[in-house]
C-alpha cells in the first residue's frame, strides 16, 4: 500500500505540474458552472442540486478520459514503465496507485463545486434539503470511480494517450446511451437484462433523489473493481509476455 501511495502522490503532483492538468480543471469547472447556472440556479425552481447530479454522468464524460489517458500509456511511451516493472512493485500496486492518484485529482478538482452548495444555502428560500445533496456527492464519487477505472484499464492497453482517451470516452458513452436501446426490436430479451444491470443512469437518478440504495453502491463498486482487475491483468500480461 505504501508503494501504491507513492505512485498516487507522484501522479497527483504531475497533474498540477503540466498544462494538461490545469486544462482539465478548467474544463471541469466550466462545465460544472454552466450546468449549475442553466439547470439549478433558476428563479422559481426548488433549491435542489438534483438536476446537476443527474447530469454528472455527462459532465464527467470528457473529463474522466482526459484524466486517465496518460496514466499508464505515457509510462509505456516514455519507457518509465520499465522502471516501475523492474522495481519491487506488483501490478496491483501500480494500478492502485494510478487509480488513487486520478481519484485524488478529481476530488481536489471537485472541491470548488462546494461553492454551489454555499450559493444555494445563502440565497434559496426555503433552504435546500442537505440529504439529497450528500447523496448526490456520494453518487458523484462512485460514478467518478467507475469512469476512472475504465480509463485506467484503457490506458494500460496502449502507449498512445489519444487512443486511450477515445477508448475510455466511447466505453463511457456506450454505458450512458445503452438504456436508449431498451425496448428496441433489435435488442434480444437478454440484452435488455444486461443493460439494466450495467447502465449507471437509472442508479444516478436514485442518488439524485436522495435515495442511497445498497444495491446501487454495490453496483458501482463491483463494476469499478472489475475494470481495475482487468487493468491489473493487462499490466501483468505486459510484464510476462
Amino acid at each position: 500500500m505504501k508503494r501504491a501511495r507513492a505512485i498516487a502522490a507522484r501522479e497527483l503532483a504531475s497533474y498540477f505540474r503540466t498544462p494538461a492538468g490545469w486544462v482539465i480543471v478548467a474544463l471541469y469547472l466550466f462545465l460544472g458552472g454552466l450546468f449549475f447556472m442553466l439547470w439549478t440556479l433558476v428563479p422559481g425552481k426548488p433549491a435542489s442540486m438534483r438536476d446537476l447530479f443527474m447530469l454528472s454522468g455527462w459532465l464527467l464524460l470528457p473529463v474522466a478520459p482526459a484524466i486517465t489517458m496518460r496514466l499508464i500509456a505515457d509510462e509505456i511511451r516514455a519507457g518509465t514503465m520499465e522502471g516501475l516493472l523492474t522495481s519491487p512493485v506488483g501490478a496491483a500496486a501500480i494500478v492502485a496507485g494510478k487509480f488513487m492518484g486520478a481519484c485524488a485529482f478529481l476530488t481536489i478538482m471537485s472541491l470548488p463545486t462546494l461553492v454551489y452548495v454555499g450559493v444555494l444555502f445563502a440565497h434559496a428560500s426555503p433552504m435546500p434539503d442537505l440529504g439529497p445533496i450528500l447523496a448526490g456527492y456520494l453518487c458523484l464519487a462512485l460514478l467518478a470511480g467507475l469512469y476512472l477505472s475504465i480509463g485506467v484499464a484503457a490506458s494500460c492497453m496502449t502507449s498512445n494517450a489519444t487512443l486511450a482517451f477515445m477508448l475510455t470516452f466511447f466505453a463511457i458513452l456506450g454505458l450512458l446511451l445503452a438504456p436508449g436501446l431498451m425496448g428496441s426490436r433489435l435488442l434480444p430479451a437478454w440484452g435488455t437484462g444486461v443493460i439494466e444491470a450495467v447502465a449507471p443512469m437509472p442508479r444516478i437518478g436514485d442518488f439524485a433523489r436522495g435515495v442511497i440504495a445498497l444495491s446501487n453502491v454495490v453496483y458501482f463498486l463491483s463494476i469499478t473493481g472489475i475494470f481495475l482487475l482487468a487493468a491489473v491483468s493487462i499490466v501483468e500480461w505486459r510484464r510476462w509476455r
Binding site: R10, A13, S14, T80, E82, T86
Partner: peptide
Amino acid sequence: LPESAPLYPEM
C-alpha cells in the same frame, strides 16, 4: 539503469 535512462521530466 535501462538504456537511455527514462525519467519523469516534470520531477
